[in-house]
C-alpha cells in the first residue's frame, strides 16, 4: 500500500492539483480582507472563522478527481484483481490525500493569518485545530469522491453532500479559537477521529458498489 500512497502523492504534485486548494485558500483570505476593509480589530476577531470556512471550501476542490480518474482508467479494477480490499485502497488514498492537502494548507495559514491580523496566540490555536481537523476534511472529501465517482456533475453534488456533514468540524474548529479550556479541541478531535476512522469503510463500500 505504500506504493499506492507514494504514487497518489506524486500524482497530486505533478498535476499541480496539490497547489490548487492552497491558492484558493489564500485567495479567499485576501478577498475577505478586501471586502471587510482595513479594520484590524474586526479582521482579527472574525479572521479565524473565515480561515476555517476557507479551509472547508478548499477541501471541496479536489473531490472530483480523487477517485474518478482511477475508476475510469481501470486502476481500481487492477487493484481489486490483485486482492487488495476496497477498504485498504480507500485508506491508502485517504493518507495520500491528506499528505498532499493538510500540511500545505497549514503552511499557507501563516501568510493568510498575517493578512487578517490574527495574533500569535490565535494563530497557534488555529494551527492546532487544523492539524486535528484536516484529516476529517480529507476523509469527507474522499468519501464523497467515492460516492459521486462516475456521476454527471459530481463536483457540485459533492459540495451538497459534503458541506452539511462538515458542520461539526467547522463548529468545533472555530470554537477552538476562543476557548481557553481546551474542551472544544477535544470535541474537534472526537469528531475528526470518528470521520477519519469511518471514511475507509464508507468509501470502500462505495467503491465496491460502483464496480459493475
Amino acid at each position: 500500500m505504500w506504493a499506492l500512497i507514494r504514487r497518489d502523492v506524486a500524482q497530486a504534485w505533478r498535476a499541480g492539483g496539490a497547489m490548487l486548494p492552497v491558492v484558493f485558500f489564500l485567495l479567499v483570505a485576501t478577498l475577505f480582507a478586501f471586502a471587510v476593509g482595513p479594520d484590524a480589530q474586526l479582521l482579527g476577531r472574525t479572521g479565524g472563522g473565515v480561515l476555517w470556512m476557507a479551509a472547508l471550501l478548499a477541501a471541496l476542490l479536489p473531490v472530483d478527481r480523487l477517485i474518478e480518474p482511477d475508476r475510469l482508467s481501470g486502476v481500481l479494477d487492477q487493484l481489486a484483481v490483485r486482492g487488495h480490499s476496497d477498504e485498504s485502497v480507500a485508506a491508502a488514498k485517504l493518507v495520500a490525500h491528506w499528505l498532499s492537502f493538510g500540511p500545505t494548507l497549514m503552511l499557507s495559514v501563516l501568510p493568510a493569518a498575517a493578512l487578517l491580523r490574527i495574533d500569535a496566540d490565535a494563530l497557534l490555536r488555529l494551527e492546532a485545530g487544523l492539524a486535528i481537523g484536516t484529516p476529517a476534511l480529507a476523509a469527507l472529501g474522499l468519501t464523497v469522491s467515492a460516492l459521486t465517482a462516475g456521476l454527471r456533475g459530481a463536483g457540485a453534488l459533492g459540495g451538497l453532500l459534503m458541506l452539511p456533514i462538515a458542520v461539526p468540524v467547522l463548529i468545533f474548529g472555530a470554537s477552538v479559537l476562543n476557548d481557553g479550556s481546551g474542551s472544544a479541541l477535544k470535541l474537534l478531535a472526537a469528531v475528526s477521529l470518528l470521520l477519519t476512522a469511518g471514511a475507509p469503510f464508507a468509501a470502500g463500500a462505495a467503491l465496491r458498489a460502483a464496480r459493475t
Binding site: 504514487r7 500524482q11 505533478r14 481501470g74 486502476v75 479494477d77
Partner: peptide, 15 residues
C-alpha cells in the same frame, strides 16, 4: 492461484 486481467482499460498513469 493469482489472477491477472488485461481488459480495455490500460490502468497506466498517462503522464
Amino acid at each position: 492461484g493469482m489472477v491477472a486481467l488485461a481488459d480495455e482499460n490500460v490502468a497506466l498513469d498517462r503522464d
